[in-house]
Simulated scan of single mutants.
Amino acid sequence: MRADARRNYERLLAAAEELFRRDGTEASLEEVARTAGVGIGTLYRHFPNRDALLEALLREQFEGLRAAAERLTELPPEQALTELLVLFTERITQYRGLPASALAVLRTPGSALYEACHAMNDAGQRLVEHLQRAGVVRADVPARDVLALAASVAWLGEQSGDLEQRERLLRVVTDGFSARSS
């Protein structure tokens, strides 16, 4: 990539970061381009659609979550479950509207975010299965439901803006799929 194109790319990512945090993932792409100081055509040359822009912003975040899920298997199982859910809900709420976007993308093969979401989701599933084998998570709870419930708690916390509620709901959800509660 030429130096000027690279600068435009970086400015677009910085503008999207700012606007998605403030206005959510449905922020105007025209405003992203304007904030970056480039035309909308430049934005579309780098990012053909909103998902491609989100994917570029989230690639490192999702890779970090995937790696964290793999590292969490080294912790005591109860601690690993709690840390997975807290980390997942914190990362997925970094931009307003992201929980809904991530859930939709998991059902949209071919989306720019699809592979990144699935790699993160697969690592989370492996961790939940590890926790099931350790007797921490109920065997009758599919791993995909654990992550879907965490995404739901993240979405609800995002809607209410109440971090205490999110933490409280995470404890309730965690207790619900605890092997001790079955």
Rank of each mutant, 00 (worst) to 15 (best):
R45C: 08
R2W: 11
R107K: 04
V38P: 07
A14E: 13
V136T: 14
R66T: 02
V153K: 11
L54N: 00
R6K: 15
Q94E: 09
E74V: 05
Q61N: 14
R168K: 14
L12Q: 09
E83D: 02
A69D: 07
R166F: 00
A69R: 13
T82G: 11
L65W: 00
A179I: 01
D145I: 14
E115R: 13
F20I: 00
E17M: 12
S182E: 13
D23K: 10
R171G: 05
L13C: 01
A112S: 12
R180Y: 11
R107C: 02
D175T: 14
A150S: 10
T82M: 08
V153D: 13
L113H: 01
R50E: 02
L53C: 04
I92W: 03
G39F: 06
Y9Q: 07
D23L: 15
R66M: 08
Q79W: 04
H46N: 11
G97E: 01
L53H: 07
A16E: 13
S160C: 10
F20E: 06
F47M: 06
A5E: 15
Q125Y: 11
E63M: 15
V32P: 12
A100I: 00
E17W: 12
V136F: 07
R59V: 03
G124D: 02
L58P: 13
Y95E: 08
F62P: 04
Y114D: 03
H46P: 02
G135I: 03
T42M: 15
D162M: 05
G157H: 00
L75C: 06
A104Y: 04
E26D: 11
L113R: 00
L149T: 01
P76T: 10
I40G: 03
A14V: 07
A36W: 08
L54Y: 09
V172C: 12
D140S: 14
L106P: 13
E18P: 00
S28L: 02
